[in-house]
Simulated assay, not measured.
Amino acid sequence: MLQSPCINICKMDATSGLCTGCFRTIDEITLWSRTDDATRAGILAAVARRRLEQSPTAGEVRGDGKR
């Protein structure tokens, strides 16, 4: 079972319709607990894409070797 991207910062952004903590839509959040791993993997891919759109340098290694 794939782990939820929830980080317990649960606030929906009115403009984007995404949770500011996990970058999921309300439909994705409610679907998560009752769906299969294939669907969860799709949600996680969408979350990763949205995070990059919000912060294009997220996850890159800095000059000092830290993230």
Rank of each mutant, 00 (worst) to 15 (best):
R40W: 01
T15H: 10
S55Q: 13
T30I: 08
R50P: 10
T20G: 06
C22V: 07
T25A: 13
T20W: 06
C22T: 06
S33M: 03
C10A: 07
T30F: 01
T35S: 05
T25D: 14
D27G: 01
G65D: 10
I29M: 06
A41M: 14
A58P: 03
R67V: 15
T30H: 03
V61S: 12
S16R: 07
M1C: 01
W32S: 01
T39S: 04
G65W: 08
S33R: 00
A46D: 15
R24G: 04
K66R: 14
M12Q: 10
W32C: 02
G17W: 02
N8Q: 12
L44N: 15
A14M: 09
E28T: 12
V47S: 06
R40E: 02
S16Y: 11
D36P: 04
R49F: 14
T57F: 07
T35K: 00
A41K: 07
A45F: 07
G65V: 14
D27T: 05
I29C: 04
D27Y: 02
T15K: 09
L18P: 11
D27A: 11
C10Q: 11
T39Q: 03
Q54V: 14
T57N: 12
E60W: 04
G59L: 10
E60V: 08
R49W: 12
E53Y: 06
A46G: 10
A48F: 05
Q54H: 05
P5I: 06
A46R: 04
I43F: 03
R67D: 10
R49P: 07
K66G: 13
N8H: 05
T39G: 00
I9H: 08
L52T: 04
A14Q: 12
T25P: 10
M12N: 09
R40N: 01
P56Q: 04
I9T: 05
T15S: 11
S33Y: 01
G65S: 09
T57R: 08
I7Y: 02
S4K: 00
I7F: 00
S4Q: 07
D64Y: 03
C6M: 08
T25I: 13
A38P: 04
T30Q: 11
T57Q: 13
A38F: 07
F23G: 03
A46F: 04
D36L: 08
A41S: 15
C19R: 03
A41G: 12
D64F: 10
M1G: 00
D13F: 11
T30N: 12
T20L: 12
P5D: 06
K11V: 14
L44G: 09
R49S: 15
V47W: 00
R40V: 00
Q3F: 00
G42T: 05
I9V: 14
L52F: 10
F23S: 06
V47E: 02
M12G: 13
I9E: 13
C22F: 06
M12T: 09
E53R: 10
C19L: 04
G17N: 06
E60F: 13
K11I: 15
V47H: 03
D27K: 01
T39L: 01
S33E: 08
L2H: 02
R40L: 02
S4N: 15
T15W: 02
L18A: 11
G63F: 08
M1E: 06
A41R: 12
T39Y: 00
R24I: 05
I9R: 06
R34I: 07
D64S: 07
I43G: 01
M12C: 05
S33C: 02
E28M: 13
I29G: 02
E53D: 11
C19N: 04
